[in-house]
Nucleic acid binder design. Structure first.
Lengths: 219, 219
DNA sequence: CCATTCACATAACAAGTGTTGTGTGAATGT
DNA sequence: ACATTCACACAACACTTGTTATGTGAATGG
């Protein structure tokens, strides 16, 4: 072996950084071999040496995106409802880095929707994310911090909420500063922890004692 | 003028249809002059005759997208909360045509995020949409069907919710059939109303009017 | 020391893109 | 009837894209 494996890995990390920069600056469509090479101060020959085809680089970029999103400096999750809230906050573009990540995600949806293989991969990733949220929902319910109901459904709702909030914040960052994003999320969560539980009221016995659920102490 | 204005308009409508077909089939990135021309059974010369530049065609396509979305067969909006619900249902990809429209929207975000001019246009459109929702929120509040609170904030929340639901439904249509989408939305709306029947919608008639809506307690 | 192997650079290719110029037949105005 | 004007087709241009082939200097192994 002419070079050490450490060199190879280091170079690969350089490529990651270049890919990231290009995507952040020019979107997923702008992810081109020459753009990455230029960002890297190299030529396309380098890239074809590491990735046999463009598709390989795209898949690598998506893995990188997922990995960077997951390994983003996360909040130390609290317990119950606080843990759910933290998990949702991690999705929102509250910092410039998170905004970059979010923009890349959204811009990648175009290519993903046209590619069945990528599309199923995305579906899988989002399903996994919902499963993680679902666990926290169930935990919060056990603590009595969330209204009863199918955790999977509630998790899907929360996921939808933050996803849509991400999109809106990307297009109108001035209208959706971090503070407002957090506020909107908290309002949403507060609605899920209403004082009077809809499902706690038996339709045949509307005068029954409603289950007491205290409002969350969040923020 | 060699030809009647009617011909010109008719031809333009043909172009619209071709543009739409191309976007639905190959996404916003796949919107290319030759693809549209082929779909139209013509050459690129036709398109350059109607649109001086690619950008003009893109803007035309976006206008078409907005117009088709707005003029989509809409529900006859009810009063108060029902009107809000109808407005939100109109956003969801509940029918194949609506799914096409939604997919095109999402795939257009890539290009829009990289283009400041398009980006501000999107921000404006979404803001207008929120304003419309906001009015319905306020109306529902006046009827006592929704909890008090800033209508603009509640509208932003509902918009985020349906937007995110659209994205999830596009990537996992099997997991988010129309029935579940409606159910999720109704659960969300139920959370915004203090006292409302848990099942506001007949599962066999998801597009129908919500039933047995009870007035919330004023706290 | 020397053959080999790796890590690229260089350059060319074919395909696809938007754009532009030049035709051409048909409809129109007079 | 004739000149004009429109609505395209046709073809070429310059450019970008992914891909591929070939070269080359440096590190490595024996």
């Amino acid at each position: 072996m002419p070079r050490s494996k450490g060199d190879h890995e280091a170079r690969r990390r350089d490529v990651s950084e270049a890919v990231w920069q290009v995507m952040a600056a020019r979107g997923f469509t702008g992810l081109t071999l020459r753009a990455v090479a230029a960002e890297l101060g190299a030529t396309t020959g380098l890239l074809t040496h590491y990735f046999p085809t463009k598709r390989a680089l795209v898949e690598y970029a998506l893995d990188l995106l997922e990995q960077r999103t997951l390994s983003r400096p996360r909040r130390d999750p609290g317990k119950g409802l606080a843990a759910l809230r933290d998990g949702l906050l991690d999705v929102l573009p509250l910092t410039p880095e998170a905004a970059d990540s979010s923009r890349i995600w959204v811009s990648s949806w175009d290519a993903a929707l046209s590619d069945p293989e990528l599309s199923t991969g995305y579906a899988r990733k989002y399903a996994a994310s919902r499963d993680r949220l679902s666990e926290r929902v169930a935990a919060a319910q056990e603590l009595g911090e969330l209204l009863p109901g199918d955790p999977a459904e509630i998790a899907a709702g929360t996921q939808a909420f933050v996803l849509g909030l991400v999109v809106q914040a990307l297009f109108a960052p001035a209208s959706f500063p971090p503070r407002r994003q957090v506020q909107l999320l908290d309002d949403y969560l507060a609605a899920l922890t209403a004082r009077i539980a809809p499902t706690a009221v038996d339709p045949r016995d509307p005068d029954g004692e409603p289950q007491s659920v205290r409002r969350p102490e969040i923020r």
